[in-house]
Write a protein that binds this DNA or RNA. Structure first.
Ligand SMILES: [Mn+2]
Ligand SMILES: [Mn+2]
Length: 305
DNA sequence: GGGGCGA
DNA sequence: TCGCCCCAACGCCGG
DNA sequence: CCGGCG
């Protein structure tokens, strides 16, 4: 057992040498090192956001579990927030310091998923996510879908940001001013998805039924709802190679060199050292969904005339 | 990873 | 003392 | 209302 100190807090680390990614020999100690080092970049995406933990105490080759309710035995300095659910409430972890991230990593939390809203206004998302899910292999169509999504948003002066998920797809993310609730945001997102699928019916679909997708990319906006989550920027994924969800610049998507597993625990720091935060302007560019929806309506009218 | 519980 | 179990359930949508 | 989906 070893100890790591974070200011006045001490985290007991158990079994640093335990392999969590046996294929690559990546250990729990490596995971903790990673999250320690990435905390400063991750911080703005963690702040005030209820978390869902994806834990793999016996490594990614064994089954893991999701954890929402913070365990009784978590230290008292781990902050939690009470959220309402169908039949009562739950206390979810909120990460407000590096020590929390280190503790969660020691608990074999490989991936962190976050609500799209923050604790002070849980019904009003601060980001809209267009989740592009390929139904077959090949990343080029996903990159193209993301660029088409950005293009549509550009047409109505809505800023957009893109990240790899570390899995198979991409997320296109729009920062919101939180004046609109989930129902309004989702209605707008569904409108966007519908237009995209209409423009590119051979490549994109909004069909929920897998069988009806026919190999096309699923433009999933269903995550824009209360208590739903998306993988957080810089989260590791429980997949071979220890891939990471990484914010990108749009020109990187245009160049077409990025693959879903381009960034991993093992190579992300080269990038962080060389590249400034591609989402640096995220907060500055928050928008009103109500106004954006109005611009989308106007545009549709002028196009049919 | 760690607590609770029944054998 | 040891082995086993638990650790999320929810919200939306189309039919 | 059910079942599928993520
Ligand atoms: Mn996805
Ligand atoms: Mn999805």
């Amino acid at each position: 057992m070893s100890l790591r100190r974070y200011g006045s807090l001490t985290v007991e680390i158990s079994r640093e040498e335990k392999p969590l990614f046996p294929g690559e020999g990546i250990t729990k100690g490596d995971l903790i090192d990673y999250y320690e080092a990435v905390y400063d970049r991750m911080r703005s995406h963690l702040e005030d956001r209820p978390l869902v933990l994806r834990r793999f105490p016996d490594g990614i080759e064994k089954s893991g579990f999701y954890q929402k309710q913070a365990a009784e035995h978590f230290p008292d300095w781990i902050r939690t927030t009470r959220v309402q659910k169908q039949n009562g409430h739950q206390d979810l972890v909120v990460c407000d310091k590096k020590a929390t991230l280190a503790f969660l990593a020691d608990q074999a939390t490989i991936a962190l998923h976050g609500w799209l809203s923050r604790e002070d206004r849980p019904d009003n998302p601060d980001r809209l996510v267009v989740d592009l899910d390929p139904s077959k292999d090949g990343f080029a169509p996903v990159r193209r879908a993301a660029l088409r999504c950005r293009e549509l948003l550009d047409e109505i002066d809505v800023p957009s940001f893109v990240k790899t998920t570390g899995s198979r797809g991409l997320h296109v993310v729009v920062p919101l001013d939180r004046r609109a609730d989930f129902d309004s945001v989702r209605a707008f997102a569904r409108e966007l998805a519908g237009i995209l699928a209409e423009r590119f019916p051979d490549d994109l679909t909004i069909e929920q039924r897998k069988r009806k997708r026919r190999g096309r990319i699923y433009v999933d906006v269903g995550r824009n709802a209360y208590a739903q989550t998306a993988v957080l920027p810089y989260s590791v994924r429980a997949r071979p190679g220890a891939p990471v969800a990484v914010p990108l610049r749009w020109d990187e998507v245009e160049r077409g060199r990025i693959e879903p597993d381009s960034f991993t625990i093992g190579n992300l720091f080269r990038r962080l050292a060389r590249t400034e935060d591609p989402w640096r302007s995220f907060r500055r560019r928050r928008i009103s969904v109500t106004k954006a929806a109005r611009r989308l309506e106007n545009r549709k009218e002028e196009q049919q005339s």
